[in-house]
Amino acid sequence: MSRFAGLDIGSTATKCAVIEDGRVVMTVVLPSMPDMRLAAENALRECGAEGLPVITTGYGRALHEPRLGQVSEITALAAGVGLVAPDAATVVDIGGQDSKVVRVEAGRVLDFAMNDRCAAGTGRFLEVMSRVLHVPFDQFDDVASEDVEPLPVTSTCTVFAESEVVGLLSLRHPPARILKGVLQSVCSRVASLGRQVGMVAPVVCTGGTVQSRAVVRSLSLALGVPVSVPPSPQRVTAIGAALLCARRAAGGQLPNVG
């Protein structure tokens, strides 16, 4: 058997990847809700991966069976980056419910920092604030790309930030400027996470949120280094899990547990 699957069951989206001879041959992304277990099965089926050896990862990694093993999404992310951006030294991942900065080398984790407690610095914060600003999600990128000065939004507590944003709106500031301020605040939060592990170039960013060009631009500004986005940034973790699956099937030593 030469095909292997990786299944990343995230809190927002479930991603599946299939690799063959070290090359990605198929990926899919499905919403995880309302039923993560079902989403996992559907993702495997749509990928044509039923019956293939699979390693699961992500928040719901324990939900799917049978599996060859399960790894943490950070280990899988590092492995995936090792394939799609082999030179990367640092990975910034902004997910729906958390964000992570991982120092990597040859597909392995050197150090990492993760924020999963506070909505600030995650896709969720952007989502909530876009709603307060009445900016539909499909227009987010356009509005956040307008050539206007961002208005600083200093509160990172979601409740405080919400009232700050409402306050700015009531002063008739244009939503685009506020949205850019919100984006700046999220990215500065991610940057402070990054400073904990040290931002070593080259930096790549992954996760669903960085599909927005505005997010990437703002992130690069906050981090003070250029960042690149690999193709399908949302699927890198699933790809990494598939790689680890192949390695494990070949009798490799990674990972330690699972």
């Binding site: 984790v109 993760m114 999963d116 330690n256």
Partner: peptide
């Protein structure tokens, strides 16, 4: 691992511990 009210490991804690062990 930051503990607040929980008395068992949270999903995020599991990811942290697992990543640490896997990266050894």
């Amino acid at each position: 691992l930051e503990v607040d009210r929980q008395t068992t490991l949270t999903g995020g804690d599991r990811t942290r511990v697992q990543t640490l062990l896997e990266s050894l």
